[in-house]
Amino acid sequence: MKRPLALSSALALLCSVASAQAAPLTVYCPMSDDDCGSVLAAFAADTGNEARFVRIGAGEILARIRAEKANPQAGLWLAGAADNFIQAAEEGLLAPHKAAGIDKVDPRFADKDGAWTPISMSPLVFAYNADLVEEAQAPIPDSWTSFADPAYQKNVALAHAASSGTAYVALASVVQLSGEDEGFQLMKDIDKNVIQYTRSGVAPSRMVANGEVALAMAFTQDVEAALAAGYPLDYAFPKEGTGFEVNAAAAVANAPEDQATAATAFLDWVLTEKGQAAMGATFRGPIVPGYVNPEARIDLSNVKLIDYDFAWAGANRARLLERYENEVRHKADAQ
């Protein structure tokens, strides 16, 4: 009689373990719903690890993980500029993990301690509506100063740097190009032309695509997505050179064990050929050389990039954002 009882207990234990393993990975993700979903679906299909995501802006993810530090509600932070992750690592909010395949990535774009994992690269681009530009008799944007041109008065949409990784990379790019005081003066001049600040970095380019404003900043993948959907959208790069995002992912510190295990599995997977293809399908540039999305319309090989120091941008993020809120625009103004 004892053997059936033991077998029953063993089966119950196995079911309990299987149930625990089946709990989906909870992911905070600032990409679009489609992009978050497609990458995690590819991860699940290839590894069997199911995941669910909460979509919020990169800056807001940092704030949420900070607020949840004593009781983490997610295991993985998927996507966002590396400078956000650098700040999070300095605050002890990330669980270091040196991903398998990290040796294939240029060391300039990786964290030496493995606090976060680089997953893709995206340059900033100017998105504009040619009809509205012509109607405003404004010049085609070809410089960071174009956003301050009076011809674009109340015809610009930007994301807020405190809530959007896209907008913070733009702020850090302007500061690195022009110097801090000159860069902030330009942001103040640009502010005079801004009709709306959004919480999401994707929203401004969508406003351009919908004919609501003439000009916005975006990462190239956002413009690619609009073009693929058939929207009338034009793009240009600044003659001075453009900043870029090293897109990253990281495991959240002190997450439950099953969440932590699934998170590190994702970090190992995303640098594989299938992981890079899944990121590339969102029109983000590869961080591991070799993958090219055949459907992409923007040739990233000819884009003039500045020597963007994302480590400096991450280390100075809190200070620059405080100055931005005090001198340019309060976060509360973002919609």
Rank of each mutant, 00 (worst) to 15 (best):
G201E: 12
P204E: 05
S205T: 14
M207R: 11
V208A: 02
N210T: 00
E212C: 00
E212M: 07
A214Y: 02
A214R: 01
M217D: 11
A218D: 09
A218F: 06
T220S: 13
D222K: 06
D222I: 13
E224F: 01
A225V: 04
A226Y: 11
A228W: 09
A228Q: 14
G230I: 00
Y231H: 13
P232R: 07
L233A: 04
L233W: 04
L233Q: 09
L233P: 04
Y235I: 05
Y235V: 05
A236I: 08
A236C: 08
F237I: 10
K239F: 02
K239M: 10
E240L: 11
T242V: 12
G243C: 10
F244M: 13
V246G: 12
V246W: 12
N247A: 12
A249M: 10
V252G: 02
V252M: 03
V252S: 01
A253M: 11
A253L: 09
A253V: 12
A255D: 04
P256R: 01
E257M: 13
Q259Y: 04
Q259G: 04
Q259R: 05
A260Y: 10
T261A: 15
A262Q: 15
F266W: 02
L267K: 11
W269Y: 13
W269R: 06
V270Y: 07
V270A: 05
L271A: 09
T272R: 07
T272K: 08
K274S: 15
A278E: 01
A278K: 02
M279E: 13
M279K: 01
A281Y: 07
F283D: 09
P286G: 10
V288A: 01
P289C: 06
Y291Q: 03
Y291P: 02
V292H: 14
N293P: 05
P294L: 08
P294R: 09
R297G: 01
D299V: 04
D299E: 07
N302E: 13
V303F: 06
L305R: 15
I306R: 03
I306H: 03
D307Y: 06
D307T: 00
Y308W: 08
D309N: 14
A311K: 15
A311F: 10
W312P: 00
A313C: 09
G314R: 07
A315K: 15
R317I: 03
R317P: 08
R317E: 10
A318D: 13
L320D: 14
E322W: 08
R323Q: 15
